[in-house]
Every structure is written in structure tokens, then in C-alpha cells.
Design a protein around this nucleic acid. Sequence first.
DNA 1: CTGCATCCTTAATGATACTG
DNA 2: CAGTATCATTAAGGATGCAG
Lengths: 130, 130
Amino acid sequence: MDEQPPWNVMVATCPSRTSLARIANKWTAMTVIALSEGRLRFGEIRKAVDGISGKVLAETLRDLERDGIVSRTAYDQMPPRVEYELTALGRTLQEPLAALGRWAETHIVEVESARAAYDEKSAQADAAMS
Amino acid sequence: MDEQPPWNVMVATCPSRTSLARIANKWTAMTVIALSEGRLRFGEIRKAVDGISGKVLAETLRDLERDGIVSRTAYDQMPPRVEYELTALGRTLQEPLAALGRWAETHIVEVESARAAYDEKSAQADAAMS
DNA sequence: CTGCATCCTTAATGATACTG
DNA sequence: CAGTATCATTAAGGATGCAG
């Protein structure tokens, strides 16, 4: 009954590509992974996503909130307290992005050895030209 | 027996993060998705990944080859003929990246409605300040 | 503390021309 | 055809200061 959706990320003008561009992004992936632990404050996320700047995290969270992946709760306090958590939609994205993180971790040894081999081969090729 | 690897993408200096940065990328995702069909020529990939420039595709493929995800076969012909295909390592990445593409396609309707709601709310907030 | 605004620097991308 | 090289443009990212 359900026919395949007409959306196709491989088509440049398909709206779904704007969504792919957002989620296929290292900051998005790490932010969502951090929020898999549950509801977190801005500063806690920033600590979890080691190396992210305040500006980039604010932008990432704003974009994720706009896309309905993260919800933002601001408490009217001084100093401010703002908490973020994954929405129901965001939780459907949690596992796919976590899988990417796991892939990077489990295959980094293979990747680094491939890099070393490639760089070695390139160096030889360069030397042969001289 | 197998202890958890010491790699952690959430740590800025962990080598696995360089790998995450490469795979959590829209061009990488679409290129790998294109190569899921099998062995393809440069021009065929370029056609499949609609909108990618020749320069960016060449760089993406070179990076993927360096990381051991894609293999490159150049035939000594004129005009040149170069074919690319996923390696065994690359095929382990195929499903996680395909999942991202499917997520973008399946949820774009929800995402777009979230965006509309967010933009509407922002517009109201802006108007209230005047 | 949480952001936003600003300025600045760097990286990514695009357009074009050119070579094997 | 499959690149590479160059240049121009744009986007991403970092640093700082400041307001709520």
C-alpha cells in the first residue's frame, strides 16, 4: 500500500538533501550522540562534545531545534539555565548517528593503516619523478 | 574477552575523530551510496551524485581511497578510463550511510513542518519586538 | 551561564582552463 | 575522460566582548 516516497537525496534539488546535509555532519553527529544520555545543559553538551566552540554549538543546536530534532527549554533564571533533549524525531536519528561513531572507533586502526600505505605509495611515486 | 576499544570520537584528540569527520559528511555519504551499485567510472559517479563538481568528487574519492574505503583502478587508455568500487572496509560503511540517506528521505516531511513552525514562531517574536 | 554579535582566519566549494 | 591547477567566491570555524 505504502508506495516508496518520491524523495531522493541523490537529486540535487530534492528537499531531503538539505536534511542529509544537516545530519551528515560531524558536529551534528557528536551533538546527537551527547544528547543520547538524556536532557543536558548547554555547558554539559559543550563538555561532552570535546573541542566544539560555543558559537558552533549554539548554531548546531539552533539548527537541530529548527529541524525538530532537539527541543530547547529555557528557565527564566539568572544566571540562565537552558536544557536540551532529543525529540521523538531526534531519537529516531540517535541510532544511525551512533552507528557512524562506532564505525569510526572500530575501524580507525584499519583506516590509519590504509592511510599509511597510501602515503607511502605516494611518496614513492613522487620520488620516482625526480 | 574483547575489551571495549580505547577509541572515543567524543575526545577531540582521538584519531577516530578524523575518521568520523570524513564519513559524517554529505559528499562522502552520497558517494558511498552511489558506489553501492557496484563498480563505477568517475563520470558515472558524478552523474549519480547530482550536483557535485568534478573537483570535489576527485578530492572525495582520493580521500576515500586513502582511508581504504574505495579502490581505484586506472586503465592505461586514451581517453582515460578509471573505475572505483567499495573495498571490503567500504562495504561495512555502506549500510550506516545508506541509513542516513533513508532517514533524510523518510523524515523530510516532518523536518520541513518543524522548520515552518520554527520560522513562524521566530517571525512572531521579531514582530513583537517592534 | 547562555547566548548573540562582531571580526577575523581558515577551509570548502565552484568555475575555468589545461594536460595526459 | 579523468583529472590537476589556478583563481575567485562562499561557508565554516574560532576569539572576543557583551547583554540578559
